[in-house]
């Protein structure tokens, strides 16, 4: 993977080109209006065209980007566990309540770091859940149930 990430100008340029072309195609269906009275499609169309031009520039001119030696290695583990942790909160907050959502979130995000044991992450999650329930739900009136089963 790092070998692919070396070619940052290719990835950036192609992604940008894709976004620009998609916008041009998608916005084509919007009313364009005239330059005096612009329709909703006018400005996005201009941006899409600009995006295409800039992306071509990136592809043509920025050469091969090489990872700098001081660049940290991608932390896939951190990425996956942190994103899962937030996804768990999103999935559980309204269905199961704030406390279970926080517990799940802390347990998952703790996996991104070796040094936190299961017991200490359980304790941390319980403290977070209790504290947030009091502060946000009771005191600040966040419209979430603490536990909804």
């Amino acid at each position: 993977m790092p070998s692919l990430l070396r070619y940052t100008h290719l990835i950036c340029g192609l992604t940008g080109l894709g976004i620009g072309l998609f916008v041009l195609w998608h916005v084509n269906a919007y009313p364009m209006g005239t330059s005096t009275r612009m329709g909703p499609g006018y400005f996005p169309w201009m941006l899409g065209a600009l995006m295409v031009v800039l992306s071509l520039g990136v592809l043509a001119l920025e050469g091969r980007g090489v990872m700098a030696p001081d660049m940290p290695r991608p932390s896939w583990r951190g990425l996956i566990w942190i994103l899962l942790s937030i996804a768990a909160f999103a999935a559980l907050a309204e269905r199961a309540g704030l406390a279970p959502a926080i517990m799940a979130s802390v347990l998952l995000s703790a996996r991104a770091d070796d040094s936190l044991t299961l017991l200490s992450s359980l304790i941390l999650g319980a403290i977070c859940a209790a504290f947030s329930s009091v502060l946000f739900v009771l005191m600040l009136g966040l419209p979430l149930r603490v536990i909804a089963l």
Binding site: F89, A90, A93, I102, S105, A110, L116, S120, S132, L144
Partner: peptide, 25 residues
Amino acid sequence: RFLYPVIVVLVCIGVYSISNTVFDV
């Protein structure tokens, strides 16, 4: 290691509370 799970939770709650929707999370 104790700090960042708390940050993640605060991020979730903070974002949820803006318009009370999990879509934002």
